[in-house]
Design a protein around this nucleic acid. Structure first.
Length: 494
RNA sequence: GGCGACAUAGCCAAGUGGUAAGGCAGGGGUCUGCAAAACCCCCAUCCCCAGUUCGAAUCUGGGUGUCGCCUCCA
């Protein structure tokens, strides 16, 4: 079984055949740091993170390039709005993205080039287009002549004539064709500029990706990714620019697009008021839970985010982890032999156009079944069987980007809910007053209350112990009794 | 208006010709001082209509609905 991927270029699921055996070159359109990264960004980059993890697990040497478009109209607009230099805007929002990427466990791209570091290449690229007669200069910039590229519209399946018909009244009278788009924008007042053969200015959108693709991956490479909303015009324009310059087709063998995230059944946007800033979100919720939630949905489908779905995902993942912990303790010191660690069924799901939903379902079922089976066996057999399952599950979870050790803690409670409020403290304090310390930290305080409750239980004073449990619950603390003692935890939403 | 995607149980969601994975929620039971956890059992015929086929959630045609793109967007 080998990887098959849906290819936007051909509108079909096709076997992935790399240009160079054993290698995979991947370019993904990254951030334009002009505003807060949002939950939709997370879905897109998580998708390609998974693709890379799977490719690597299958033995491919992956070169993953994810660019940063750090100069753009919106960045300039934002700097005017905030009254700060455009470089500050970039630093702020890019920093925010990087914080989120770390939190989400996104693998570092092998290269993350920035448009402003590629100016020479970009300018050269534009010049090549002019030399080839595919671009022309006007008083305000340099434009790509769509007419020079007959297959324009192929990737996004647009009809050029219909596009022209629908085009709004051309503002730029100098444009030869309303569809022509800017490669280089000549300087306007209060805008950052770079010197060029056409005078000071800056690149248009699209050109930076064409240049970076060519620079880092060559005129043709394996996979070009991005979110579905980039198919037109961004990727269409990239194709036109690149193929015009290189004369090679296709620019990328596979075009892979991640479905857009919706919130409450609607597109996420600032104007609709359902914009979910990623950093805020990750400060309040488990990164593993959102990752798991996205994995439960096919990457190409539109995904509708709801708090209920997140909650369900967090619980589902927690259950999986819990089963795995049980298996781990059964396995004890027993180690699985390395060659036993393969998961063909799981791999087959991912090979099938990244069927993460099926893969996760298989993992859930397998871990659960194996746990139940192991429990039936003799101690010796049990350890061996459990160790093998644990090793396999660990492998799957690593590919999914959900390693147990890193994420388990974050699932039981969100960071913001880990502490008692003043009133909760006061209430619990009152229950253990007379015991001395009023400088107890939260954990110590809770443990005192739990201890008191256990004392009541020991003396069969159940009415009192239940009252204490209720008090703890009011403070967001859940207690669980077992033969080995009483445990407690915050019941913060994940 | 043009192009496209999607429509499976209360919710999320796999499954592309042979009688519906998984998760969450829910119901019943075992266990427990109670509760939690755990364990056992139960819970859909796949938007509608008409076709093709021995057989369709899966193919074809026609509807209906939701969403997206066509302007900046991950």
């Amino acid at each position: 079984m080998a990887l098959r991927l849906y290819n936007t270029r051909t509108r079909a699921v096709e076997p992935f055949v790399p240009i160079e055996r054993g290698k995979a070159s991947v370019y993904v359109c990254g951030m334009t740091p002009s505003f807060h990264p949002h939950l939709g960004h997370a879905r897109t980059f998580l998708t390609f993170d998974l693709l890379c993890r799977h490719l690597r697990a299958q033995g491919y040497a992956v070169t993953y390039v994810q660019n940063v478009t750090d100069i753009d109209d919106r960045i300039i607009d934002r700097s005017h709005i905030e009254g700060v230099p455009w470089t500050d805007v970039v630093a702020r929002y890019l920093g925010e993205y990087e914080w989120c990427a770390t939190r989400l466990g996104l693998a570092q791209p092998d290269v993350s080039p920035r448009a402003t570091d590629e100016m020479h290449g970009i300018i050269a690229f534009v010049q090549e287009l002019i030399d080839k007669g595919a671009a022309y200069e006007t008083t305000d910039g340099v434009y790509f002549a769509v007419e020079s590229f007959p297959s324009y519209g192929q990737l996004s399946r647009r009809n050029i004539d219909e596009l022209r018909a629908g085009e709004r009244i051309a503002v730029r009278e100098e444009k030869r064709d309303p569809l022509d788009f800017a490669l280089w924008k000549k300087a306007k007042p209060k805008e950052p500029t770079w010197p060029s053969p056409w005078g000071p200015g800056r690149p248009g959108w699209h050109i930076e990706c064409s240049e970076m693709c060519r620079h880092y991956l060559g005129g043709q490479f394996d996979i070009h990714g991005g979110a579905a909303d980039l198919v037109f015009p961004h990727h269409e324009n990239e194709v036109a620019q690149t193929e015009k310059v290189t004369g090679l087709h296709p620019m990328a063998n596979f075009w892979v697009h991640a479905g857009l995230l919706q919130v409450d059944g609607q597109k996420m946007s600032k104007s609709l008021g359902n914009f979910i800033p990623l950093k805020t979100f990750l400060e309040q919720h488990s990164a593993a839970a959102i990752r798991y939630l996205f994995l439960q949905t096919g990457y190409r489908k539109p995904s509708n985010f709801t708090p209920a779905a997140l909650e369900a995902a967090a619980k589902g993942l927690r259950g999986l982890y819990s089963d795995l912990e049980s298996l781990r303790s059964m396995a004890s010191q027993h180690a699985a032999s390395a060659d036993a660690v393969n998961t063909p069924e799981f791999d087959a799901y991912l090979d099938d156009d990244l069927n993460t939903s099926g893969a996760v379902g298989w993992l859930q079922k397998t871990v659960r079944d194996k746990r139940l089976q192991a429990a039936q066996r003799s101690a010796a057999e049990q350890a061996a069987a459990a160790a093998e399952t644990v090793a396999k599950a660990d492998r799957c979870l690593a590919i999914l980007g959900l390693p147990l050790t890193e994420h388990a803690a974050g699932l039981t409670a969100a960071p913001g809910t880990m502490a008692l409020t003043e009133s909760q403290r006061a209430a619990l304090q009152a229950l253990v007053d007379g015991s001395g310390g009023f400088e107890l930290d939260d954990a110590k305080l809770i443990e005192r209350v739990v201890a008191r409750r256990n004392a009541e239980r020991a003396s069969k004073n159940f009415a009192e112990s239940d009252k204490l449990r209720a008090e703890l619950l009011k403070a967001g603390v859940v207690v669980r009794d077992s033969t080995s003692g009483t445990e407690w935890s915050f019941n913060g939403s994940s």
